[in-house]
Design a protein around this nucleic acid. Structure first.
Length: 267
DNA sequence: AGATATTCCTGGAGGC
DNA sequence: TGCCTCCAGGAATATC
């Protein structure tokens, strides 16, 4: 379940392995993932040199030397394996051959991922995205986005127009740290609470990136598979556990998604 | 425009 | 053992 920190960690891994390499060939083992692969993708990227690997929200952006940009989203179960030794796994969908003789394999059992290519600064999947939480995102910005929203704060945090990169896990954890109930209508969150929430979102994402970065070697695994790592969570998937305040962690369903929280200390 | 439900997909867990 | 159902996740899409 890659959220922003996991994607950022994958970006670091891909960058260190890919930048400066030329793509000698590409093999697509199916028609597409969540969307069909663009027509002529193999021809379009073969021979190109990778200039940079960037991230926007949970999207990986791979800059090629002809200013084309390859876009990769891991969906929920996507994984890049660098320096792979084989590429015939059940859910291996894309193989990229680099000029150093290595093979990078994209594996994704659930196929919620995306692989696309575009040129210019506009892409349908990127155009509507909200602010990066680790950029100069402020509590004033969050406050103004929430002021007319009647849905629960938890749901708004998952809305990529409000802020990007925060998924189900970090939304739960950030609300817990901020002592804000996930059920609160977003428009009732005070400016001071937005400040706390923004601070905690920045904190937990930065912490997770640090953990991912420092454990990149282990996290990458012996086979070089970049996926997601296990972070220490306080409430996520901890239903029934005792909270530090003495209360009990509970699970509730909001818009068909699990929310974990402590009724005693989140108000 | 905002809110809500549905959709994609597979694997793992739990029930019987 | 095997089947069935449910659940997890991101985010576009459709519908109200």
């Amino acid at each position: 379940m890659p959220e922003l920190p996991e994607v950022e960690t994958v970006r670091t891994g891909l960058a260190s392995s890919w930048i400066g390499k030329r793509i000698d060939g590409v093999e697509l083992k199916r028609d597409g993932l969540r969307f069909p692969f663009p027509k002529g993708l193999e021809k379009r990227i073969s021979g190109r040199v990778i200039r940079n690997v960037r991230r926007r929200a949970k999207y990986l952006l791979i800059d090629l030397d002809n200013s084309d940009i390859l876009l990769s989203h891991l969906g929920m179960s996507g994984k890049w394996t660098l320096d792979a030794t084989e590429s015939d796994g059940k859910h291996d969908h894309v193989v990229i051959y680099l000029d150093d003789g290595t093979m990078s394999v994209y594996n994704d059992p659930r196929r919620f991922g995306v692989l696309d290519i575009f040129n210019g600064d506009s892409h349908k999947l990127l155009d509507h995205l909200g602010p990066e939480p680790l950029g100069n995102w402020t509590h004033e910005d969050l406050f103004s986005k929430l002021r007319n929203r009647k849905s629960p704060i938890k749901i708004c945090l998952l809305d990529q127009k409000v802020v990007v990169g925060v998924g189900n896990i970090y939304a739960c954890e950030a609300l817990y740290r901020s002592k804000i109930s996930p059920k609160r209508k977003a428009c009732t969150i005070k400016k001071k609470e937005c400040k706390k929430l923004v601070d905690e979102i920045k904190n937990i994402l930065a912490e997770a990136i640090r953990v991912g970065g420092s454990s990149l070697r282990d996290f990458a695994g012996a086979d070089g598979a970049l996926g997601y790592f296990i972070h220490q969570f306080k409430v996520y998937d901890k239903e029934g556990n005792e909270c530090e305040c003495g209360g009990t962690i509970e699970r509730l369903v909001q818009s068909n998604r699990s929310t974990f929280w402590c009724k005693s200390c989140q108000k």
